[in-house]
């Protein structure tokens, strides 16, 4: 089921938390929401779940609008809020039963559904405990179980791995991948590696606006218009090498990374490569080229570039 966000605006006081953003998530797609804290990720997600009423704009999930058919949307959405709020005093099973009943699952199927969730989310050993007695990782699994119990077509996960230890993060990620195959998923995070590992598409928002949108590959290619080479050249003084490098026609900029070890970063002009020229320069000056590789722009760099400006 497609999610279409149209001109969504949410204003708190005199701050525009979400500023007239529009995007579309195709059925079956996993979209990663990236952005610094306070960028508007959570606000956008809350609007999609019908919890927050936006000042302007609309969100459509399938054919349903958050303004006209919130009840219908609520039936097909599974939501895990950022802080994973749960009734601490309730046993897991009771809580899942409560959720299943509210979601309108048939009485005869509730038991079966609960057991299925317990199995998928790996809660078997803990199922009779109260939620308040669980560790953070297990609480997160209960959070996922409550979001999934009615087999929703759309999943909204707000920072599903925040506060977990590395092993738990991997487990939850695997779980999301597994269940996300047949669903439309929007998940937010500020861990770039996580979004890259779990999402088909990445969207970066900053100050309520979308600043980048595409696959990890596309974002990289976009940011990487210029070739950057890291080279180590031996047998020469760094000043000589620096001078010669700058003389190369295709080179725009040279950076000395380490003066003693003669490590440089060479940035070429747009759409040009300096690899061959660097090699030839070394040969003609009787220097030895011991290292040359192109530096890939990291998602982190793209993220910082886009969100710090």
């Amino acid at each position: 089921m497609d999610i279409v966000v149209e001109n969504l605006t949410k204003i708190y006081g005199n701050q525009r938390a979400v500023d007239n953003i529009s995007f579309r998530v195709k059925a079956g797609e996993v979209l990663g929401f990236l952005g610094p804290n306070g960028a508007g990720k959570t606000t956008t997600m809350k609007a999609i779940t019908t919890y927050l009423i936006p000042n302007q704009g609309d969100v459509k999930v399938g054919d349903y609008s958050i303004h006209k058919n919130p009840e219908e949307i609520k039936k097909i959405i599974g939501y895990l809020p950022e802080s994973n709020p749960l009734y601490q005093e309730m046993p897991i099973i009771d809580y899942l039963k409560f959720v299943a009943e509210l979601q309108g699952i048939e009485k005869s199927k509730i038991r079966e559904k609960i057991l299925e969730m317990v199995e998928i989310c790996g809660l078997e050993g803990e199922k009779h405990k109260k939620i308040g007695e669980l560790s953070k990782g297990y609480k997160q699994r209960v959070g996922l179980a409550q979001a999934l119990i009615h087999d929703p077509e759309v999943l909204i996960l707000d920072e599903p791995t925040s506060g977990l230890d590395p092993n738990q993060i991997v487990e939850i990620r695997e779980l999301i991948k597994k269940i996300g195959r047949r669903k439309t998923v929007i998940l937010s995070s500020h861990i770039l590696a996580e979004v890259e590992a779990t999402c088909d598409r990445i969207m970066i928002i900053n100050r309520g606006k979308i600043v980048a949108d595409g696959t990890a590959e596309e974002l990289r290619r976009h940011a990487q218009g210029k070739e950057i080479l890291r080279v180590t050249i031996e047998d020469g003084t760094s000043n000589d090498i620096f001078g010669k490098l700058k003389e190369i026609q295709s080179v725009e900029m040279v950076d000395i990374i380490n003066q003693n070890a003669n490590i440089f970063e060479v940035q070429s002009k747009v759409e040009q490569s300096s690899k061959r020229a660097v090699f030839k320069m070394c040969v003609s000056n009787h220097w030895t080229l011991t290292e040359m590789h192109s530096v890939e722009t990291k998602l982190e760099d793209i993220f910082r570039e886009l969100t710090l400006s």
Partner: peptide
């Protein structure tokens, strides 16, 4: 306080 109200109101209830 705990935020459970958000989960409750995003269920199919008004």
């Amino acid at each position: 306080k705990t935020g459970t109200i958000e989960l409750l109101l995003t269920r199919p209830v008004n």
